[in-house]
């Protein structure tokens, strides 16, 4: 299913900054981060059961690239891929990047976003459900993904979550301005 509208999409000025990051080793960095998380919180990956070997195609619709994620604990792999590579995955999840990030930190209700078509899924529904329930329970913060603790973790969480909040507000203003076109 295609996402319903442009709700919560990144403003163009921010969106244009992102292609720069595709030149960075984003995939290997996220792979390391996920494997490190598996070392610290193996239970999260156990919750996924058989679906930990599924290939999830995560498509931020407002960015030029997508990700594939195989959340197989310490064998996890994250790759930055072209949008055309969706067909090779078990599951496809699409939505604005800020909305997808809000699912990670539990700010937004995944069910509500799906039923209202702000995010869309296709492929193996049970694998999506397992991932969604696992993420819901994980209550992940940015510092968890980066493997940080203590005061530094709090500082990083405050900084990143604050920046995301600002970006969401910008995106919301952007959507409101575009609303008459919809």
């Amino acid at each position: 299913m295609l996402p319903r509208n442009s709700e919560g999409r990144l403003p163009a000025v921010v969106r244009h900054l992102f292609p720069v990051f595709t030149g960075l080793p984003l995939g290997p960095l996220l792979t390391l981060s996920l494997r490190s998380l598996a070392g610290r919180q193996p239970r999260l990956f156990d919750l996924l059961g058989e679906h930990r070997t599924a290939c999830y195609f995560i498509d931020p619709v407002d960015l030029a690239f997508a990700f594939t994620v195989v959340p197989d604990a310490e064998r996890s792999i994250v790759r930055v891929v072209r949008k055309s590579e969706a067909a090779t995955s078990s599951v496809q999840i699409r939505g604005p990047i800020l909305t997808l990030l809000s699912l990670l930190d539990g700010t937004l209700d995944g069910d509500a976003l799906f039923f209202s078509r702000i995010i869309s899924i296709s492929g193996r529904t049970e694998a999506v459900l397992a991932l969604r329930n696992t993420i819901e329970d994980a209550e992940l913060r940015p510092a968890d993904l980066l493997g940080l603790r203590g005061a530094l973790a709090r500082l990083v969480d405050t900084g990143i979550l604050g920046a995301l909040d600002v970006a969401r507000q910008m995106a919301a203003r952007n959507s409101r301005r575009k609303a008459p076109e919809a």
Partner: peptide, 15 residues
């Protein structure tokens, strides 16, 4: 309705 038997399929003009 076990989720492993649920699918959402895009079709012309509908899901």
């Amino acid at each position: 309705s076990p989720p492993e038997m649920v699918s959402y399929d895009d079709e012309p003009n509908s899901t």
